[in-house]
């Protein structure tokens, strides 16, 4: 019970934040919420099931282009395109998973990295359709979700928050279900679960597909809410960022990705005011995290004081 109360309270706090914060920060918050959905998708595969992928940018880009191409080339309305983006992310994850899940550990990381690189290069190569490096800007009429205008800050925030809320509650229900415990079983001891008669390959594939749907929706939402899709979103950096958010916030915690995305976003925002060395911050954060706090903020909290935190 207190688990649900906590998460509803977080959502209410976000609503309050929109009303109180000045427009600049409220706008940042919509960005953080969309990135947090992406990070939650990453957390499902990495945090709960232990599948360290270095290729989630591919799934993010699949959603982004799945939605963006339909809107831009076929003139599809934004809401069905958003759903299509999620499906594209899931389908891509299934495809990658079928191949990549034959490997494990270090090979899995390299294979996912390579697939993402193939995707990134393909986007650049077919630049006639995808816009390549320059990308495609979506225009105002293409960015109407149920009559809400995504070029305006306030409706954009509400859509981002609703998406985030759905994702958060779905994820919470997921990790508390029987399937959630199966995910942990994959992380903790795959061999033993095989011995108990489970099919690890099938379960991991399902996990990856769910993770892909989250990432795809996030990618599609990013394109529609902020009106731009480009090849850089498929680059390695967008595979590293969700990992960073999840590691910072706490791998295997429901709220960790939001916390990590928010903190990291403002850390970069703050330091880019001081220096241009923004990559340095990302790099240093990664090294410090794996050295001193491999469990992240919420992971450490859970270990010390709040064992019930999901």
């Amino acid at each position: 019970m207190k688990i649900w109360i906590l998460h509803i309270a977080v959502l209410l706090a976000l609503v309050l934040a929109q009303l109180v914060l000045p427009p600049y920060h409220a706008n940042n918050l919509s960005r953080i919420l969309v990135l947090a959905v992406f990070a939650m998708g990453y957390n499902i595969s990495f945090g709960y099931a232990g599948l360290l992928s270095l290729g989630h940018a591919l799934l993010f880009a699949a959603g982004m282009y799945g939605a963006g191409m339909l809107v831009h080339h076929a003139g599809m309305p934004a809401l069905p395109a958003l759903i299509a983006g999620g499906l594209a992310g899931g389908a891509m994850a299934g495809l990658v998973g079928l191949l990549a899940l034959r490997t494990a550990g270090v090979s899995f990381m390299i294979v996912t990295l390579m697939f993402a690189q193939v995707g990134f290069l393909s986007i650049l190569y077919f630049n006639g359709v995808t816009g390549g490096d320059e990308g495609i800007a979506l225009t105002g009429p293409q960015r109407q979700i149920l009559g809400l205008d995504m070029t305006q800050d306030t409706p954009r925030f509400w859509v981002a928050l609703i998406l985030f809320a759905i994702a958060l509650l779905v994820k919470l229900a997921l990790v508390q279900s029987r399937f959630g415990r199966l995910m942990l079983a994959m992380r903790e001891n795959e061999e033993r679960s095989r011995m108990l008669g489970l099919n690890p390959f099938g379960i991991k594939l399902k996990i990856l597909v769910i993770s892909g749907v989250f990432s795809g929706v996030a990618g599609a939402a990013y394109a529609l809410l902020f009106g731009y899709l480009g090849g850089s979103f498929a680059s390695v950096q967008y595979s590293i960022l969700p990992m960073l958010y999840v590691l910072l916030g706490g791998a295997g915690t429901v709220l960790g990705p939001l916390l990590g995305a928010g903190l990291m976003f403002y850390l970069v925002d703050f330091t880019s005011g001081l220096t241009s060395a923004y990559l340095m911050v990302v790099g240093a954060a990664l090294v410090v995290l794996v050295l001193f706090a491999p469990k992240g903020i919420l992971g450490t909290l859970r270990e010390r004081w709040l064992p019930w935190l999901p």
Binding site: V106, M109, L279, G283, L286, V287, V290
Partner: peptide
């Protein structure tokens, strides 16, 4: 200072070397 303290755990070292990559690239850029 970094890899030894991670006990050469394969996943942690990949994350750490990615961090190292960013630090070195940014240092070179600056």
């Amino acid at each position: 200072f970094v890899l030894k303290r991670l006990n050469y755990d394969p996943e942690a070292t990949i994350v750490a070397t990615i961090g190292l990559l960013y630090i070195l690239e940014q240092a070179a850029l600056s």
